[in-house]
Amino acid sequence: MEQILEVKDLHVSFNTYAGEVKAVRGVSFELNKGETLAFVGESGCGKTVTAKAILRLLKPPFAEIKEGSQILYQGRDVVHMDKKALSSYRGEEVSMIFQDPMTSLNPTMKIGKQIMESLRIHKHISKQEARKEAIELLRLVNIPSPETRVDSYPHELSGGMRQRVMIAIALACSPNILIADEPTTALDVTIQIQIMDLLKDLKTKLGTAIILVTHDLGVVANFADRVQVMYAGQVLERGTTKEIFEDSRHPYTWALLSSVPTLAKESKQELYALKGTPPDLILPLNHCPFAARCEHCMQICKERNPAETVLSETHRVSCWLQHPDAPRTLTFNGKEARS
């Protein structure tokens, strides 16, 4: 598999009046061509910030990518890219679909013009050609009668349609990586399926790698190839979708998986609920970030951060339970936590 993006030891901080909020604390991962990688975690765990850092969308001086962080796109350093290189990198190489289709389109511009905007900037083509291509893109994302729709304003479209337009804009210059930040959170289930199918379709058609940022485990199970579970700005566990859903080794992953009701579970039973709240990201954290809420917390967890244990080529977990001296623990589905 060909690797197209590599992130090494990414640290992102926000400078606020209250102090420095360390939103991302040492995230490393790689993305291969044509695969879907999902970032999963609660709000505030740094998944969106990581995604935005890849596109350098975080605004300095309020937000800063710390010294020593590396983002390499096909070997090119993204962190220190100049303005010119950055503008061709964004849109042509990597693009993003935002969470809220209601607010991320410009309400005063026709949707055709919004799609044409990026085509004209990156491809240097005439208005007529750009319009033609915009219509083709609308057809690609399954918008009915694209010839007339190209002249509608965002308010004339429904939420699902707007999300399709967002996807069309993101795909305009056929990028290699598409970052989808909660693409279906604002949509209904039946529309959610249509959008996820569309993304799946486009992935096979165009070979685009997708970074899917979401908290919906159902979407992840059906859509992602690999998953990384994030918490308080760190990656706690990563693996293929199968490894995460069937053989997860981190207590936080267990908590996430068992707190969602499924259709198979008995009704009105108490759902597993995590106690407490995520740690304050202003404070320094030099122990396991999940220690305070973890049912299996040991003394060492409150003192030192666990190193990443390699379980298989793809499956890695940062948890002290993997240490040879840790007590025997069963995972939430009754398997041995340490193999």
Binding site: Q192, I193, A221, N222, L257, L263
Partner: peptide, 23 residues
């Protein structure tokens, strides 16, 4: 009901899904 994504990567969702056209 068929559109509810289940947290089970083994299951092939598209097999049981009933897709609704339009909105």
């Amino acid at each position: 009901i068929s559109a509810i994504p289940t947290a089970d990567p083994e299951e092939d969702m598209s097999a049981r899904q009933i897709k609704l056209e339009g909105e």
